[in-house]
Design a binder for these strands. Structure first.
Ligand SMILES: [Mn+2]
Ligand SMILES: [Mn+2]
Ligand SMILES: [Zn+2]
Ligand SMILES: [Zn+2]
Lengths: 145, 145
DNA sequence: ATCCTAATCAAGACTTTGTCTAAGTCAATA
DNA sequence: TATTGACTTAGACAAAGTCTTGATTAGGAT
């Protein structure tokens, strides 16, 4: 049983109606190779399998998956949001300031612990995200030349 | 001599032509009370002083200030970018997941140090930003009721 | 197997945020 | 004061996302 049937199983368990559209969106996210897709990229890949799928449905489905905690949403560059199927293992992101490519990174320790009690100002803390920025080896070679 | 005339001084030193439009944008950012404004909010406040200022000029001026390192740009919610005149002292942000309000916070230690050498994958690291999320006391009172 | 209906979907108008272009204006220097 | 290239304006344009409305359908009931 692969991760996708796991996902579809969980969703059905939560009362989701399983439609062809939702299935292809889940398949695209779960296909493994290209993490951190934009909504439009997800739509493009989904439409390759199910040509009539609409943009609105992709946005709706992604939003639902985010609400259910099955997918993470983040914005690395202030442009289109990215959707990350790797919601089970806490991780942070390293973004190339040249080409915009995004890698998962794993940091030492709990980032939430970096905020002293005195700084949290009575907020009920829910989470923290870290975005590291730098030039990837490819961009370094091109720009550093 | 206040922080604003400091800023205008530095900009003139860098060959900036000092126009009424640039002056009011700098004044708005430097007015102190409302940090983390959006470009449209900056435009609104600038237009209160100089009614004919255009949106394009506000965007251009903010972009120039960011390039010069005088203002920080970040996106807390994937919607409009925020402009932060507090570029001199490193700090992070705490965003209320209820009302979207943004506070500066200061963390213990250097966040860049949290990324092990083995994880940086040959990137030339340039920086890191942390965004803490939680419910502010007001939103806690309203939602927790 | 067929029916029923609330949940879901498609199409496209609309909104928000930001960029670009062309023509007019002006700050700084001579 | 005259000059001129940097600057500004207005609005067209673009990208990303939301919302409305009518049509379709998954899944339970019969
Ligand atoms: Mn990731
Ligand atoms: Mn700040
Ligand atoms: Zn790169
Ligand atoms: Zn709040």
């Amino acid at each position: 049983m692969n991760a996708m049937s796991d996902l579809l199983e969980r969703l059905r368990g939560r009362g989701w109606r399983l439609t062809a559209q939702r299935r292809v969106v889940a398949e695209v996210l779960d296909s493994g190779e290209h993490v951190h897709l934009t909504a439009d990229e997800v739509h493009g890949r989904a439409a390759a399998r199910l040509p009539e799928i609409s943009r609105a449905t992709v946005y709706n489905t992604l939003g639902e998956l985010v609400s259910l905690g099955e997918v993470l949403e983040f914005s690395a560059d202030g442009r289109a949001k990215r959707y990350d199927p790797n919601a089970r293992h806490a991780h942070q992101h390293l973004v190339c300031s040249g080409c915009g490519s995004i890698r998962d990174v794993h940091i030492a320790g709990d980032p939430m612990g970096a905020l002293p009690e005195s700084e949290s100002a009575g907020y009920a803390l829910e989470g923290v995200e870290m975005t590291f920025r730098g030039l990837c080896p490819d961009c370094r070679a091109k720009r550093g030349a």
